[in-house]
Nucleic acid binder design. Sequence first.
DNA 1: AATTTTGTCTAACACATGTTAGGCTATGTC
DNA 2: GACATAGCCTAACATGTGTTAGACAAAATT
Lengths: 203, 203
Amino acid sequence: MSESFTINRKEQLLEVAARLFKQRGYAATSMRDLAAELGIEAASLYHHIKSKEEILETICFELASKFSNAIAEVNDIYFNAEEKLRMAIKSHVQIITENTNQSAVFLQEWRNLSEPKLNAFMKLRDAYENGIRVILKDGMNEDVFADVDEKFASLTILSTVNWINEWYNPNGKMNAEEIAQKLCDFILGGLRKKLVTDINYKP
Amino acid sequence: MSESFTINRKEQLLEVAARLFKQRGYAATSMRDLAAELGIEAASLYHHIKSKEEILETICFELASKFSNAIAEVNDIYFNAEEKLRMAIKSHVQIITENTNQSAVFLQEWRNLSEPKLNAFMKLRDAYENGIRVILKDGMNEDVFADVDEKFASLTILSTVNWINEWYNPNGKMNAEEIAQKLCDFILGGLRKKLVTDINYKP
DNA sequence: AATTTTGTCTAACACATGTTAGGCTATGTC
DNA sequence: GACATAGCCTAACATGTGTTAGACAAAATT
């Protein structure tokens, strides 16, 4: 194929599959639906992929590795806990907004994986959550974060950053950067009105 | 039947269905799966229900009305915005923790509804979200809540309270009250360590 | 020019799907 | 005792499911 500007057909297949899986759900999307969307017959799909579940696996694990890389990078580059958290959130939001369909599959359809992939996937998720948890721990040691239950806090943070996938509109007025900014402010500052004497207030 | 202590079979059916829909997803749960779990044949289900989708509808709309009632009650009883928000969150957490299976269906499987029920459902969801939004608006007018984008904030709050369904364990150590308490603190206070000079600090 | 690769097709299989029709039996009601 | 109702059954149907086998044509490679 050498260098070609035509998108690899398999990638196109995965792209369309992610869109359909998001719209209709994995189980409710048939191979014939997918094929029709690509303008081919269902049997032709099997030239590119081994099985329906392989599609789901590919989508889920590709996104999982993006998340893994992102948090590893953040932990490498930054030292300050608040900065780490801000950048982790920013990366997270960026990945979601840049891969809306895949994200929906990653967040909701992974349950349809079967063993042993299911287990492997859950381990990756847990590892990621643990990455966030470590940042929180550091922040508490550094005395920049309030004393909270780390597990509870990490799950709550992840919930807010993941939920954007439910309402985010690529054509809306907020871009990834703005969303991340607002989310960080909310997570760090909370909703209640405060005097400007936060311990870390920077003018 | 007069008064009977045996659970209505239809209710039992709905209960089991909710559990299976949560575990395997609506589309991936067959009527034969459901029947087997009840110890009967698939055809026998149709003595109690009209169709598979009717089961989904019943579960979704029953929970929707619980949420609606809860927020209406909160708006009736309380006047202070912060108190309203706290109580709304508390009710919300209570409904989720008391109906874990139904909640999962309500939050994730509603997409499988078809028109016109789908539209009706989404309107109920929007109305609920709007209820939260009004509380936020009031709070900002009362100057107890920081000046935030209401839509953004309401969605973020809902995300955190809904996400508990992903990890909440009825046999875990935290009960609904404690979870609600922690969530409120997080949402109102945020993660960053603060001096005790919050404008509304109460010793 | 010969050959491999890539991408598609038709046809089909084995099985799962939601649902209907009609019959049987135990229980409760008049 | 007659009758209705509730709750289940077997049998079946029409359609949809993921997937395989094997053929054909265009494009790329040798």
